[in-house]
Design a protein around this nucleic acid. Sequence first.
DNA 1: CGGGCCCGTTCTGCATACAAGGAGAATCGC
DNA 2: GCGATTCTCCTTGTATGCAGAACGGGCCCG
Lengths: 264, 264
Amino acid sequence: MTATRTKSDKTQIARALFTLRDQILGGEFAAGERMSELPLVERLGVSRTPLRLALATLEHEGLLEKLPHGGYTVREFTQAEIADAIEVRGVLEGSAARFAAERGISRRELQPLNDLNDQMAAVMHLSDYDSFAQYVDVNRRFHLRLLRLSRSTQLQRAWAAIVALPFASPSALVLTEIELNASRQVVRLGHSQHVSLVEAITLRQGTRAESVAREHARISLANLEVVLRERELLKRIPGASLVSSAGFEEAHGADASAPAALIE
Amino acid sequence: MTATRTKSDKTQIARALFTLRDQILGGEFAAGERMSELPLVERLGVSRTPLRLALATLEHEGLLEKLPHGGYTVREFTQAEIADAIEVRGVLEGSAARFAAERGISRRELQPLNDLNDQMAAVMHLSDYDSFAQYVDVNRRFHLRLLRLSRSTQLQRAWAAIVALPFASPSALVLTEIELNASRQVVRLGHSQHVSLVEAITLRQGTRAESVAREHARISLANLEVVLRERELLKRIPGASLVSSAGFEEAHGADASAPAALIE
DNA sequence: CGGGCCCGTTCTGCATACAAGGAGAATCGC
DNA sequence: GCGATTCTCCTTGTATGCAGAACGGGCCCG
């Protein structure tokens, strides 16, 4: 046990939240496993009070599921659900792009997006790991900035809810994508779509911007298929252990049965 | 029909949550007011532990905001944000309709939607309060069912996050809409859109279904404008007290391309 | 007379003790 | 031997006590 008080973290809730999230995504818990409080208390070194707050947050994020008579389990995801999450992200980013275009964004406000695209162009040909990391980071910031430009707090909220699932985030599959030399083309395509996206917003072409953003998300969808074929890659994706081994059965559509609590 | 057991829920967390939510939406707290725990403990008759859980939930729902150094305040909403929330709901319902159409829904699965439309047609001409309530309930169930038919858990999750804001829910503005005799037309339009929506899904016309659903949400947008003009009506809407009095600028009308002034 | 510092009040964050309810095992009855 | 029942342990829900930090007021010093 760690009797020494750790002063590195501000609040116990945050400590429990970060640690627990990392451990869940790192595969230290089996999908469907019950998260009992007492073992976690010992494991994390925090008391039950902040732990419960962290668990509630993780439930809202979608990583945990409430059990009918109290307690939580680790949420299990089907491959169809991952595809679904990515597609929903595409819808939201498409709307963000459309809003930005329709609501009118000044050239000055669009400059950061252009800068990010330039940075991306500068590193996307390089093969060293540092450039990979930079690419992923730039990509992440582009998507974040796009959402902000929509000037829609609710769109950002919905987007954040989806992206809380790690494999749905725009950064999730990029790394694997870059590591596949065969997919180097895909990186170029992604950058090209970014450029088109900014152009469409600049010209206030709302429908075009929406279409481009939706199509852009489908890169992740294609990557997902690749990753699911080469199971080695899957292991490197955060939260991969939560994905059930059920067959992928051709493009999303399968059984997404919602928890009854959500509806009715 | 209407579940009355919500109030009498056994756990203190649920009690605190429901009561507090009702009181916030009922206007018993000023927008921006700090929610200190001890006064709430006395007010609600629960101890701090379940109260804190309820507060955290309300924050996740978007009704409360965390303060930088601990504690919460009641979230304040601008009128532009309400319009935004409704528009985002339209986007999500549009995607739900498109997914339902594209992913293929059997006739049997669509039957409930047709039934609900029939029920709606039966009561939408009547003027007694009971019929009003029935109309609202049928409408609510239609939207819920539509989301379920999308077979997208993430879409449902995002939708639930938006609808947690009471004035963004499909039921929010319907009552005032019906009470205005001048708006009786709007009810007919809404029902007609429901019918078109089901037809589009039946024929697997994804784009049409999406367009119709988005347009359908704009009824709420139009209603919002009416309500904001007649401030008496606003008082009857849950959560109205959280809306700041900043000007609405007459913008979100029939035109899809809103002027930038709206967002500023 | 004004500003800064110090102290006290009050708040949140945290831990623990206690209670109630359910799942599961062992036992008793048939 | 099998089923039902009861008992026990375990798990979560709840209350309260305590500590640290922030805010405000008052006092002292310049």
